[in-house]
């Protein structure tokens, strides 16, 4: 399974997203720290979930960290995230 698919699978299981978009930006970081041949090191994600309602920014991101677990430690060098509850612009 690709890294992006693995991220998707774990997030879907933990956060039941209404919208989930994962973009591999590794090519934009070619040659930077953490980049490696084959990409799949730098990602951006946008996730909308009911779970985030009434959670602070820190709590939302902690929920993502928890869902991704060792993926963040070992595989993904950088993951920027846009985390919203339904209705938030």
């Amino acid at each position: 399974m690709s890294v992006a698919q693995e991220i998707r699978t774990r997030l879907q299981a933990a956060l039941t997203p209404i919208e989930l978009e994962i973009i591999d930006q590794s090519d934009e970081h070619r040659g930077h720290a953490g980049w490696r041949e084959g990409g799949e090191t730098h990602f951006h994600m946008r996730l909308v979930s009911d779970v985030f309602t009434d959670l602070s920014r820190i709590e939302r991101q902690r929920a993502v960290h928890k869902a991704l677990g060792d993926l963040l430690e070992a595989t993904v060098h950088a993951l920027s995230m846009d985390l919203r509850a339904p209705g938030e612009v």
Partner: peptide, 12 residues
């Protein structure tokens, strides 16, 4: 107190 990382700081 931890405010956050890059995403949170930029959004705030």
């Amino acid at each position: 107190e931890l405010v956050g990382g890059c995403d949170i700081v930029r959004e705030m």
